[in-house]
């Protein structure tokens, strides 16, 4: 069915397919290739605790998984346009937001696998690390040393604002199972998870045994900024859900959901890729014997 609202969704959904399963994966694959070509195992052995073929296989697996998800996206779009009867599939008769949400979760899967494999890579690096030297920064690493207090206050205000707006719109109805309560719980739990991850990055164990303090601080700062931006985007999305309930904008639900996934990807993946440029990372630490001298002050 081609109405203007549906057309808007189709265009937005095409954007979701492109951004999450083609554009960002292509950038990530480009970075993988650049690292393997520019910093080969012969010169940077500490970067590769496993043979290079292992990483090439992982690279290929990621490439095929994302390509498959692109095809899946087009199949879903075809089904939404030509096969699904939306009047029976959703209560309100509009395209259900479950389509972009479920597809978005599938799109994030290979990216999450990649993220988890990074932890595995660090674990192997720690296991293979025979260096007896340990390096640390003599600067304090507090939350406000890496992110602006204004940003933190803004993110927290938006969380509180989103919950209060939702409660206000629904006449402060606090009942178990009610949308408002579910949204408040979801927002609180997701933000608690982000806060926990942030604290773990700031005060937790050093994952990459070779990473210099400068690169580590940059990585922590980039990740914390991403978390804050994602939190803010989530609060704004939840506010739109509350507004949606006042003005009965159900016809926009699916479009908002697909845009939400794109904004989240842009603020998390996009921000990370933009801020952590490969040419700024110190790869010399992955050479044999790098930084093994005791008592260095740098």
């Amino acid at each position: 069915m081609l109405t203007s609202t549906n057309s808007l969704f189709y265009i937005a959904f095409l954007g979701q397919i492109f951004l999450l399963s083609y554009y960002f994966p292509k950038k990530i694959l480009g970075r993988m290739k650049y690292v393997m070509d520019t910093y080969p195992p012969s010169q940077y052995p500490r970067l590769y605790p496993k043979p290079i073929e292992y990483y090439r296989r992982g690279q290929l697996g990621f490439k095929y998984a994302t390509r498959f998800i692109v095809v899946l996206g087009f199949v879903i779009l075809y089904a939404i346009i030509f096969l699904v009867d939306h009047s029976t599939f959703a209560d309100d008769g509009y395209i259900s937001e479950a389509w972009p949400a479920a597809y978005g979760i599938i799109q994030f899967l290979p990216l999450m696998v990649l993220e988890f494999s990074e932890f595995g890579q660090y674990k192997m690096m720690r296991k293979a690390n025979v260096a007896t030297t340990r390096t640390a920064d003599l600067r304090r690493r507090g939350l406000f040393d890496v992110v602006s207090p204004v940003l933190v206050v803004l993110a927290v205000s938006l969380i509180v604002g989103a919950i209060l707006l939702d409660l206000y719109v629904h006449q402060f109805t606090i009942e178990w199972g009610h949308d408002t309560v579910e949204r408040a719980i979801t927002l609180t739990l997701t933000n608690s998870l982000l806060a926990g991850l942030g604290a773990w990055l700031l005060y937790g164990k050093k994952l990459n045994p070779h990473q210099g303090p400068g690169d580590r601080n940059k990585q922590i700062s980039t990740n914390l900024h991403s978390f804050l931006y994602v939190s803010m985007a989530m609060s704004v999305f939840f506010m739109t859900q509350a507004v949606d309930d006042i003005y009965n904008l159900d016809f926009l639900d699916a479009t908002l959901m697909t845009l939400y996934f794109q904004v989240i990807a842009f603020l998390s993946l996009g921000h990370g890729l933009r801020e952590q440029k490969l040419e700024d990372i110190d790869f010399e630490v992955y050479k044999d014997g790098a930084g093994d001298e005791k008592g260095q002050l740098a």
Binding site: T133, K294, Q296
Partner: peptide, 28 residues
Amino acid sequence: MQITIDIDHPEPLFAQLIEQIKQAVQSG
């Protein structure tokens, strides 16, 4: 500014730490 500690060095770890912090102070 960063410090490097050698866990296999005969000098105790806390002494290495003290020495390097003092060096950092002295060098400005």
